[in-house]
C-alpha cells in the first residue's frame, strides 16, 4: 500500500515541470534497451509514474524499479511524445538516493578520486612513462585544494565520504 505524497511530487515538479506531461503511453519503456534485456524489470515509465505520485518511499528507499539501471542512453528523452525530460528526473531521484547513502559503491570510488585528486583517474607512473614514449606532453591538472574548496561548498565531500551501499 502506497500513500500519495503531494510534497515529494511537488518537489520533483519544481525541479522539472516536464514530469506533469507524462500520460503513461509507454513509448519510453518501448524504446529502453535496459527494459528490453531485463524484460521490463527496469521500466522508465514506472519510475515516472511513481514520481508523478510522489512515492518517495518506493523511489528512494525501495528503489523499485532500480533507477541505477538507467544506462543514460537518453533514447527515452528523444522518443517521449510529451517531451518529458526523463533522465533529468532520474538524476534528481538518484541525487536523493545519494544524499541518503543509497547508491552503488562504484560511484563512490569515482567520487572519492575526484575529491582526492581533482580528476577521476590519477596518472600512474606507468602511464606517465607511456605518455612520454608516445611523445605526449605532461598535464597540469587542477590544483587539488581548489577542487576541494568547491566540493566543500556543494557538500559533496560529506556525502561521498559517508559512502554508498
Amino acid at each position: 500500500m502506497s500513500v500519495i505524497n503531494f510534497e515529494f511530487r511537488n518537489e520533483v515538479l519544481k525541479h522539472n515541470a516536464s514530469l506533469s506531461y507524462c500520460y503513461q503511453c509507454s513509448t519510453c519503456s518501448g524504446g529502453c534497451p535496459v527494459a528490453l534485456i531485463t524484460e521490463g524489470k527496469y521500466n522508465p515509465r514506472k519510475i515516472i509514474e511513481e514520481a508523478i505520485l510522489g512515492l518517495q518511499e518506493k523511489l528512494v528507499n525501495e528503489q523499485d524499479p532500480n533507477p541505477w539501471l538507467c544506462s543514460t542512453c537518453q533514447k527515452c528523452v528523444e522518443l517521449c511524445p510529451q517531451k518529458v525530460e526523463l533522465t533529468e528526473i532520474f538524476t534528481l531521484i538518484k541525487n536523493q538516493c545519494f544524499e541518503k547513502g543509497k547508491f552503488p559503491e562504484a560511484f563512490s570510488a569515482q567520487g572519492q578520486a575526484v575529491l582526492e585528486f581533482g580528476i577521476a583517474i590519477p596518472y600512474s607512473k606507468a602511464i606517465i612513462s607511456r605518455r612520454e614514449k608516445l611523445g605526449l606532453p605532461s598535464i597540469n591538472t587542477a590544483p587539488v585544494e581548489e577542487i576541494q574548496t568547491l566540493l566543500k561548498e556543494t557538500k559533496f565531500d560529506k556525502n561521498i565520504t559517508r559512502g554508498g551501499d
Partner: peptide, 12 residues
C-alpha cells in the same frame, strides 16, 4: 489500484 505500477494506493 494503480495498474501502471501494479500497486494499491491511498489518496486522502
Amino acid at each position: 489500484f494503480n495498474e501502471y505500477i501494479n500497486t494499491e494506493m491511498t489518496i486522502p
